[in-house]
Design a protein around this nucleic acid. Structure first.
Lengths: 201, 201
DNA sequence: TTGATTCCATACCGTTTGGTTGGTATGGCT
DNA sequence: AGCCATACCAACCAAACGGTATGGAATCAA
């Protein structure tokens, strides 16, 4: 391995890049430190210099990469959105180009794998899920106040429901052998969303 | 380890019992063969006599144990049910005593962990999910025909939606730090179910 | 320039992994 | 009784695991 310049920031990012790819592909337990450093074209020395252990790396990955992914895919697009149509269109978009290795899928997969038995990781994951839910709850709250959503709606409850449904959808997309399952889900999901519409919507 | 009588059927069940506990607790990758044989008070020789490798054991576990669990928890209770209330009550029940290691949670967790990269396992998982969906679709179909569900309902789509939502719920229960998240989900979920109700329901 | 500190590579370590090997005891069958 | 496939055990194995020890090169503070 040829001598490198010292560029700690880039190195850290390269490690997170590789970790992102590996964790998204193989899950937490299924990913080895060795695979990460090979993909990053670095060494264990570099990795363990920047992160004390595997779990800390995963926590950083969840917070920095998955957090940014959810922010970009769900939170930013809803910022200032003032119609249920915006959420419907976003769901179609996210549903259409959903892959097994995108941020939403990876978030759900790692949560399902680790959250029940790894406290620090669960905390980091909950931070991302919480931000996702909060953005949705805010959206629902605005719609409720402005009248383009059903007035009796419970924003937080609806946010939990929405996140759960879409989370389960990512799992179903990995498992299902039925090529039209995607469309079936979106059909029913849009039907559910429509029931939230208010008078001015 | 004292010599055992030859009782292949019981031994196989004991292995599946142990595998059930270990897989439900630690996931597929996180579970070691060693842990299973210790819990079963057997040896690797016994395990690899009954199952060619770890994956085959997991496939058998999914098909025989998770399949039976879903059958018992979701399919049998809906058999012959002729009202939306039956499904609502079942959701309350399943939601209330949902644990990280029950059949539904384990099914979703292992699917999220492995389905994207392990074909044989994904096939077995899809078999269980498919049975679950089919039972729901049948229930929706009957309700549609009998009029206690909304006539324009799409049974298969609604089944996909239902399974996805509840799947995501199991993940959320593991991750969330909010003690009232369970109730929030059930509130919104029951609201969704109500929108499916027909004239005679 | 010097000294300390950060960054990163090399080599290594103990443990655990899924899986194998060789052999022994059992129990149904002839 | 004698045979033999089946069921099971104890010991073992190479590979991969997460992690460490050490040392050198680059950078910064003085």
């Amino acid at each position: 391995m040829k001598p490198r310049k010292k560029q700690p920031v880039q190195t850290r990012q390269a490690i997170l890049d590789a970790a992102d790819a590996e964790f998204s592909l193989h899950g937490y337990c299924g990913t080895g430190i060795g695979g990460i450093v090979i993909r990053a074209e670095l060494t264990k020395g570099a990795l363990f210099h920047h992160f004390p252990d595997k779990r800390a790396l995963a926590v950083a990955w969840v917070g920095e990469r998955l957090g940014a992914g959810i922010e970009q895919d769900w939170i930013a697009p809803l910022e200032g959105a003032a119609s249920l149509d915006a959420l419907r269109d976003l769901c179609r978009l996210r549903g259409k180009d959903l892959r097994a290795d995108d941020a939403t899928s990876a978030l759900v997969a790692v949560a399902a794998e680790t959250a029940a038995r790894d406290e620090p990781l669960a905390e980091a994951l909950e931070g991302v899920f919480g931000a996702w839910r909060a953005a949705l709850a805010g959206f629902f709250e605005r719609g409720k106040a402005a009248g383009w959503l059903y007035p009796a709606i419970h924003p937080e409850a609806e946010a939990v429901m929405f996140v759960s449904a879409f989370s389960g959808f990512t799992v179903a997309m990995k498992t299902s052998r039925n090529p039209q399952a995607r469309q079936l889900f979106l059909t029913a999901f849009e039907g559910y969303l429509e029931t939230l519409r208010g008078q001015q919507g």
